[in-house]
Design a protein around this nucleic acid. Structure first.
Length: 560
RNA sequence: GCCCUCAUAGUUUAAUGGAUAAAACGAGAGGCUUCUAUCCUUUUGAUGUGGGUUCGAUUCCUACUGAGGGCACCA
């Protein structure tokens, strides 16, 4: 529809002799009262032509009026906008189209035939899942799904850290506390103890460092065994939480696997890409507008930078065929990834036509203040989810579902994910626990509830033997109809801009509009001639909610 | 010191350079004998400061103020 209007306007431009280089836009006005599409062409031309926008708009109006199918009327408004109002039939056809597409409603083909690698979550094993990991997972998963909605084949990568100081702290803590390495709680406690000791006592810190070295070099079977047991426990627990969150990775590359290939590559290019400096091997980023970073330390140990190079190599061995590779991390690594990607481009010249992208996510802080282990207000991913599940269960006491456990989990995940995905992904998130736990208003459960409500209305329709149809149209065009068909455009835009929050915002607007409709109109009324149309409309809204929630990584329970 | 983000109602967030800046929470007033009140209706209230570009600026440029992050062997 948009392109139809654009072409029509372009034709008039040529007809009126304004030439072809006119940069106007056709878009949905933010206020539905301003029509279904609005165009600013008259304002853009005003200065060039030396006439008032209104005058120009009138010229367009006389050229366009009655010429475009499904455009019922065109009105000049405000400073010179052309507002297009679509005909009743258009919306009915859209409702019909949505219902016939069904499961695939909202998809686009902007990435068809492309393969995309997505890396996110990146947890530290041996340590409870941090809120930041949760944020990364939620955003990464949603972006992956957006790409899938664009037709891309997405491969998901997890890059857990299974070696290094964190693990050493945990192993040290296990020895100190005598905790059972198969118990995830004992593991968390061991890490806490180890971390505290590392920060407080110089002597213990040295001990932990030597454990770290022994683990790297695999010289002490007892330590290695503790590490392996702890990692297995950690991974199992991680698997549970990932399942709840709805992520399933295609590949897992652990940190311990990448040091060697990374170091090898760096050393092989010492002299061309890299340079020795103070005994370390560095990449001189300052020479290309970045900053210099160490890839192999003066002690000969590969740093995180070198590991990321090895990591990239392994990734390519697992998935050699791709067009875009995305890594989602906290925004503190923005500058870091500029350097690493610059190095990768120099090292892997055969990939110069492929795209590398780093998506930075914001930090999550609590409204109760900054988190710090000293203040004791650390919130782990697990504990946050648990708290939300408890709240969800309380709230769902009267739910009309057999499986309360499952519902509470789905509601809790929805609340958490929505709270994070309603923001632009790069901005810092201030997490209001109370609000997230309330499940009211602008929230994931609100969207789920709206869908559950629709289901119940549809059930009633079934009982009354009303089936959806667009034969008998109500005279009025409901506001909800003017919104629901825009979903596919929103998804495509959200994908192009890496902005899942656009989907979240749209769904909330849609749900709110539907709830107003629901309060005013009876959907499944036997006496109502328009009931079949309302049923078809409700179905289309439900489909949109379900598909939109899927993109956000949120489940849509049938009953609540 | 240098570099990068960011600054919108009391609070948490929206707004490809467009129209009267949109919601939610909070506070006030209403609404279930009806297809689910995790809902709806309604009142209240905001673009950090000074310049600039533009027909038109929350959006772009610039200075300032404030917050967060990064800047060589941590991850």
């Amino acid at each position: 529809m948009k392109t139809v209007i654009e072409t029509a306007i372009n034709n008039i431009c040529t007809e009126l002799g304004f030439g072809e280089e006119v940069f106007f836009t056709v878009e949905h006005p933010s206020d539905l009262a301003h029509g279904d599409y609005a165009c600013n062409v008259a304002m853009v031309l005003s200065k060039r032509v030396g006439k008032s926008p209104i005058e120009i708009a009138e010229q367009f109006l006389s050229g366009l009026d009655g010429q475009i199918e499904y455009v019922e009327k065109i009105v000049i408004a405000g400073p010179g906008f052309l507002n297009f109002y679509l005909a009743r039939d258009f919306f009915a056809k859209e409702i019909d189209r949505i219902n016939s597409i069904g499961k695939d409603w909202g998809k686009n083909d902007s990435w068809v035939g492309k393969r995309v690698l997505f890396e996110y979550t990146s947890p530290n094993l041996f340590k409870p899942l941090h809120i930041g990991n949760l944020v990364g997972n939620i955003i990464g998963e949603s972006l992956s799904r957006l790409f899938e909605y664009g037709g891309a084949e997405v491969k998901r990568f997890n890059y857990p850290s299974d070696i290094g100081l964190t693990v050493a702290k945990g192993v040290w803590g296990l020895r100190k506390t005598g905790g059972n390495p198969s118990d995830i709680l004992a593991l968390g406690e061991a890490y806490r103890v180890g971390n505290e000791a590392y920060e407080a006592e110089a002597e213990e810190a040295e001990e932990i460092k030597s454990i770290n070295k022994a683990l790297y070099e695999n010289t002490d079977p007892e330590l290695t065994s503790l590490r392996e047991q702890g990692i297995a426990t950690s991974k199992a627990s991680l698997g549970d939480i990932l399942k709840k969150l709805g992520t399933s990775f295609d590949h897992e590359i652990c940190e311990s696997m990448v040091s060697e290939p990374g170091a090898k590559l760096v050393k092989a290019h010492n002299g061309d890409v890299f340079k020795e400096s103070d005994g370390a091997i560095v990449y001189e980023g300052d020479k290309v507008g970045l900053h210099t970073r160490v890839f192999i330390s003066s002690k000969g140990i590969p740093t995180y930078e070198a590991k990321d190079i090895g990591h990239f190599k392994l990734k390519n061995e697992l998935e050699p065929d791709w067009d875009l590779s995305v890594i989602v991390t906290g925004s503190e690594q923005t500058e870091y990834f500029k350097v690493v990607y610059a190095v990768i481009r120099e090292l892997f010249t055969e990939f110069k036509n492929r795209e590398l992208e780093h998506v930075p996510t914001g930090f999550l802080t609590l409204t109760t203040g900054k988190m710090s282990s000293r203040k004791g207000n650390v919130l782990t991913g697990e504990s946050l989810l648990e708290e939300m599940e408890v709240a969800a269960k309380e709230k769902s006491n009267n739910a009309r579902t057999g499986n309360l456990e499952e519902l509470a989990e789905e509601v809790a995940v929805a609340a958490l994910k929505y709270q994070i995905l309603k923001h632009g992904i790069g901005s810092n998130i201030i997490f209001d626990k109370e609000k997230a736990l309330s499940f009211e208003g602008d929230s994931g459960p609100y969207l789920q509830y709206t869908n559950a409500r629709i289901n119940s209305a549809l059930e009633k329709a079934k009982q009354n033997e009303i089936t959806g149809s667009i034969k008998d149209l109500p005279a009025e065009i409901y506001r909800i109809e003017k919104l629901v068909y825009q979903f596919a455009e929103v998804v495509e835009e959200a994908l192009a801009e890496r902005a899942p929050h656009k989907v979240a915002t749209f769904l909330t607007q849609l749900a709110s509009e539907f709830n107003s409709f629901y309060a005013q109109e009876k959907i499944a009324d036997k006496e109502d001639q328009s009931a079949p149309y309302k049923v078809a409309l409700a179905k289309a809204v439900s489909l949109t909610l379900i598909n939109g929630l899927w993109v956000l990584g949120i489940k849509a329970p049938e009953r609540m």
